[in-house]
Design a protein around this nucleic acid. Structure first.
Lengths: 207, 207
DNA sequence: CTGTTACGTCACTAACAATTACGTAATAGG
DNA sequence: CCTATTACGTAATTGTTAGTGACGTAACAG
């Protein structure tokens, strides 16, 4: 994977050592203004001019750092949103319930939920952006889910035949389907019920 | 639900009976041009001006029929894409496999797959459009899934406790998740494997 | 015929992303 | 200190596109 897929942010001119250095405070001000605006109006209605105004910064100053609005948004999300923690509660089932509940919370009660639809559209039109988002946000988060399932297999709680991808997708997919397509609210208790059903074929007999 | 949520298309002026009637051939030409353009360039890059050019029609003629580009696209998709047929193959499991395979085909090999990301963004910003798409496309299609599961319960193939929404979401959700978020290809044999696993908790003992 | 609407052409507004020119300020290295 | 180099703000500009509006002409209903 080429580095450009991971580093949408523009580097300094020819060499970043010579000339006047960029003001790091501006970076933070821009990213914070981006997140704030995102959570208020959603991706589509975020304009670079408004981000600049709120950050107390000029528009060219933003374009010096990020070549596109979409890449600014991705970096803002990466730096401002903490990945789910990898709680090890003792059983894979409980870990997955916790992860599912956390994801529901993120999708329904944080800016991400409002940002995602617009971002999905941009991703489809911009492979570089898509790679950034997937590598920096999606994959790191799914890693926790895989780890929980792996621990369950190792401890004997789950069968060694457990289809990790199936379990993961069956739990996560419906949440995105609901957010992006149907608009239906997530049923209360979805996490516990879903985990029980998805793991049912893989639960080993209690020893 | 108000009728306006179902009928994005503009009616004729005050009464549709007086004055020069709209040319029905133009309707078809516009819808066909929209679908063709959609499948070539995707939602974002569809411009009303280009649709008009291809349909051999003026831009105002389009806006006389649809108030927004997004509504034109929805109607184009509704009229040009056949809903999945409701095959009754004898078992709920086989029906669900067929429906799943069909949905995979639609999402990966028809214009819908290229259109959906842009449409998701529009839906998030436009409740009327969202209602149209859900009522005209999503819900009618999911009805076939529900029917198949209901038949399985009626025949005794599935437990009466079967969680219909869970089964449906666990099969459908991952497909959209893959298309819109991860970009990962659907595993070959997903339909059969997924149905087996999702139905496992509900399969009644063979009588 | 008359009223009403559709149609095309053309011009137009408004919004916004993205770029550029220019003058000024800040920094590193010599 | 001096020079090259880059950052910064202001401001103007380009280009694209959605969506409107005016006008003259064509087609339909009664």
């Amino acid at each position: 994977m080429s580095e450009s897929l991971m580093a949408p942010r523009r580097t300094g001119g020819r060499g970043s050592d010579i000339g006047r250095p960029r003001d790091p405070d501006m970076d933070q001000a821009i990213l914070r203004a981006t997140i704030a605006l995102l959570s208020e109006v959603g991706y589509v209605r975020v304009t670079v001019a408004e981000v600049a105004r709120r950050a107390g910064v000029s528009k060219p100053a933003i374009y010096r750092r990020w070549s596109q609005k979409s890449q600014l948004v991705v970096e803002a999300m990466v730096t401002q949103m903490l990945p789910g923690k990898d709680n090890d509660s003792g059983t894979a089932a409980d870990d997955l319930v916790a992860l599912t509940d956390h994801l529901i919370d993120v999708l329904t009660r944080t800016p991400l939920g409002r940002v995602l639809p617009g971002l999905v559209a941009e991703m489809a039109a911009d492979p570089v952006l898509a790679a950034s988002y997937r590598n920096l946000i999606i994959k790191p988060n799914l890693r926790h889910w895989r780890a929980a399932i792996a621990r369950g297999i190792a401890s004997g709680e789950l069968s060694v035949d457990t289809d990790v991808d199936f379990v993961l997708n069956a739990l996560v997919g419906p949440l995105y389907f609901s957010l992006l397509i149907t608009g239906e609210p997530i049923a209360a208790g979805y996490a516990r019920a879903g985990v029980n059903l998805v793991l049912a074929p893989y639960k080993t007999a209690p020893s």
